[in-house]
Design a protein around this nucleic acid. Sequence first.
RNA 1: GCGAGAAUGGCGGAAUCGGUAGACGCGCUGGACUUAGGAUCCAGUGGGAUUUCCCGUGGGGGUUCGAGUCCCCCUUCUCGCACCA
Length: 845
Amino acid sequence: MRYDAQAVERKWQTRWETEKTFATPTDRTRPKYYVLDMFPYPSGAGLHVGHPKGYVATDVVGRAKRMMGFNVLRVMGWDSFGLPSERQAVREGIHPREVTDRNIATFRGQLQKLGLAYDWDREFATSDPRHYKWTQWIFRKLYEQGLAYQADVAVNWCPALGTVLSNEEVNDGVYVETGDPVEPRTMKQWMFRITEYAERLLSGLDNVDWPASTEKKQREWIGRSEGAQLRFDIQGSDASFEVFTTRPDTLFGCTYVVLAPEHPLVDAITSDAQRGAIAAYLDETGKKSDRDRTSQAADAPKTGAFTGAYAVCPVNGEAVPVWISDYVLASYGTGAVFACPAHDERDHAFARTFGLPIREVVAGGDVQEAAYTGDGPHVNSGFLDGLDIDTAKSRIIAWLEERGIGKGTVNYKLRDWLFSRQRYWGEPFPIVFDDDGNPHLVPESELPVLLPDLTDFTPTTGSDGEPLPPLARAEAWMNSPHGRRETNTMPQWAGSCWYYLRFLSPDRDDVPWDTEEEKYWMPVDLYVGGNEHAVLHLLYARFWHEVLFDLGLVTTPEPFERLFHQGMIHAMAYNDDPDMQGKFFYPHEVEQTDDGFVAKSDGRKLYTKNMKMSKSRYNVSNPDDLCEEHGADALRLYELFMGPLEEGGQWEDAGVAGTRRFVDRVWRLVVDPLTGERPEKLVSAGTPDRDLDRALHAAIKKVTESVDDLRFNTSVSAMMVFVNEATSANTVTVEQVEAFLRILAPFAPHVAEELWERLGHTESIANAPWPAHDESKLAVDTITLAVQVNGKVRATIEVPAEASKDEVLAIARADEKVQSWLAKGELKREIVVPGRLVNLVIPGA
RNA sequence: GCGAGAAUGGCGGAAUCGGUAGACGCGCUGGACUUAGGAUCCAGUGGGAUUUCCCGUGGGGGUUCGAGUCCCCCUUCUCGCACCA
């Protein structure tokens, strides 16, 4: 009988469910292991084979760690609030909750077919009031700490959607999903003071095991820079402004100053003569988004306008002109800079554009030609002359501090976090406003603030022209006994900021998480997800976690001990345009000819490119189809076999056929396809074949290592080697097969369970102990060495494994082929690399 | 522009304290068993010569007895970040 994947998978998935095989253990005598997947957003499109790649990898880790004696927490849930569901709901004319429930059911069904060892009893969705009650509860904590506030801020306003979008949803001035234009607009929004945690978020990175590139991205995003803040007075006026600089040592080279166009002082100091020019410039630059303004190279041509005012350079009393320019950002530092064109590329470009003077203060370059940013002795700088940059910096900072003009300071690129959206499908804020418009927390006892039912989710505009969130139409809901409710909702990041804590005790309605459970399970030992979340999600979650830590609500400062990014899966895409800008074709619509690929329908030439798997590129493979055709185990194995986890790889459906053949061969080790009984060569007693034992223990070693280093592709390969050898061996012992099935089980759990049972075991293989590899079984009696002459392999010899260097050389020299090479010249040098090769240096040979 | 990573057969990928390049799989070729097989099994599969030879890890230099691996220069691709004073 052949292996019937469908039947076997149904049988074991049902059994795991009814016997609660993967329920989270409650005893506390064993070490714990919390392995977590970044939970998905349940979109309407369902899963393609790229999505579960990470889940399969963590499943191997979770199942193996469990067999190794750990208590494993392995869970799955849904990041189910968000704009796409709301838009889908509008399209289909139903409530987002229905859309969400349906999408979740699809996702869950697809994942369950893969046999992933989740504790499904802990599943939850962030849009469930039982979860968002506690999201609101955490918001209260942050608010009470003074970390949440309202402010008028410039936001990405999308008129077509009627909502504010986050920066990451906007690219080149349009919404990335729909292409609708986005414009800058100032609105009152909820903000989090994540900047207060900038230093902590930086130092915390020292104590986690994360990919270096991700750590670096977070550091750069936080963007710490040391420098000085100092005051410039406006000449002939009481007004003054502060500037931030990382190069206070170049203050003597200041020949003008620049304010951001939005700087509050601009209007007051502009001279009558310049008023027209300034107004024109403000008009021009006001149309640009912050992103447009910051997407320029440092030496790009600059724009700006002169205010007519002069400021006094504090270090030498010189009057320097005050300009405005959009290369100075209002949102960074103080929104004003002093310009030293000699030693700053941007200032240099600006000075060249407007003919402003360039004064060298650090020797070493030709500053009229280009800004010199290297080190050198200071010149034209009074008491700083002759000093290098570092010394000059500390000297000038001390000088400024003595006189009360400025001080050494630290600045961050990190901005406060804009936390409100004008949408329906998100967590309501636990906030009400009194008649004066002051915000107040909704009492903890009244949480959750439930999202009211609406039938229309589109945002509108109020009578004053201001945007109105959908919740503003829920009249009855809005008017609470405590005051008027906040009608904005939280962004999608909110629910995912702490979901890993909710998994610890999702059934508790009295607390967000059980403190004893938190002490035991946290931190997450292994967190696997895409690197597209390298900054935002992972930074936001760390921020909340740090706050919770400060409040004594969690016991670890960092939530995610080890982080790993699975790569993006690509697949061949077919398009009738060489740049992939035309019509895409499905693989089944394509035919390969001698001249390349053509469309079956009309024979038009097609171009191919490996592209990210995506429905819009017609290159997705559906896991359901592949489970149907080849079985879940074959699919799981191929997900891991196709390449290193962090590299993603090129998907080929045919590859699943290959791992399926492997599964079939495994099956035939235990089940004779003709009789359905054990094959005769599978013996319960007898001496295990030595070579087969070697392959077995090599595989055990490899697989065991891969559980920690996550290099599963070579582990699958090692298991294939064992099965190939076992298939051709004369006898295979039950002991060998049982050891093999246990290392196979995390990868291909269904077939492993079935064969384990056929070998007489009554308990699930998921609870069987992990086999240890025996180093002595890897040893060999004789080894084959390459004999090189002048670095080229000319012969191979068999030598005893224990042979000495001299013995090896003697055998090598005695070799017939080697003899002929020795005859060609004088043997100058002999190199023996134990266990590897012999190299004979014979000049002239 | 800056930064990071990558480039190995027809394809996915192995092998990096420098030590027999191409494990394992896909695909392909030939054969066996078969009414048939996209089933299974056996053999082969980097290129070129063809008996023990030459050339091969994006290109060009270098170090070394020996380089996919180390160093220098270049090309291409992918992914980040992009006027943060």
